[in-house]
């Protein structure tokens, strides 16, 4: 029996311990805000926080998630809207919107370690997250606004 916390709630899982956290979140818990994009840790659409760190849930097995504290996009602004969520709306970042959960979770982890990121900090933190619609310049702008490094 695997025990873990998801968005603050205790959970138990007795299925295949090799199942990626992504499919547990989506298929079992119905937290569908976390997206599938590649299944190989190449695109970042499935990014969640595991003990506060940005993690690709598509390549994180349930056994590796055991005992961990997981935050998904649904949990990020549960108490009050995260500044990134507000900035995302301010910049109208989304086009199709599919990758944006992962983008925001990745950016939230960045701001925790680097509250005032430079352009190159943003580039290196965000280059694992693909946006096929090409919203990158607004993602950068929204991160800068949320961080208060740009109005």
């Amino acid at each position: 029996m695997i025990q873990l916390k998801v968005n603050g709630s205790a959970k138990k899982f007795d299925g295949d311990p090799e199942m990626p956290l992504l499919w547990y979140l989506r298929d079992v818990l119905d937290y569908t805000g976390t997206k599938f994009g590649c299944g190989a840790g190449l695109c970042g659409a499935c990014t969640v926080h595991v003990n506060g760190e940005a993690t690709r849930s598509c390549v994180t097995s349930m056994k590796d998630a055991a005992g961990k504290d997981i935050t998904t996009i649904e949990g990020l602004g549960a108490k009050s809207e995260h500044p990134l969520q507000a900035a995302w709306k301010h910049c109208n970042v989304s086009q199709c919107g599919y990758c944006q959960s992962g983008q925001i979770m990745q950016a939230a982890a960045l701001l925790k370690t680097k509250p005032k990121p430079t352009d190159s900090d943003i580039d290196s933190a965000m280059q694992g997250n693909i946006c096929r619609c090409g919203t990158y310049q607004r993602i950068r702008q929204a991160i800068q606004i949320a961080a208060g490094v740009k109005a």
Partner: peptide, 19 residues
């Protein structure tokens, strides 16, 4: 005007085919 889906997309609330 902002599109109707912007806010949902910041919360992972938009419903796609895969959802």
């Amino acid at each position: 005007l902002p599109t109707i889906d912007q806010a949902d997309h910041t919360r992972g609330a938009g419903k796609f085919g895969i959802d």
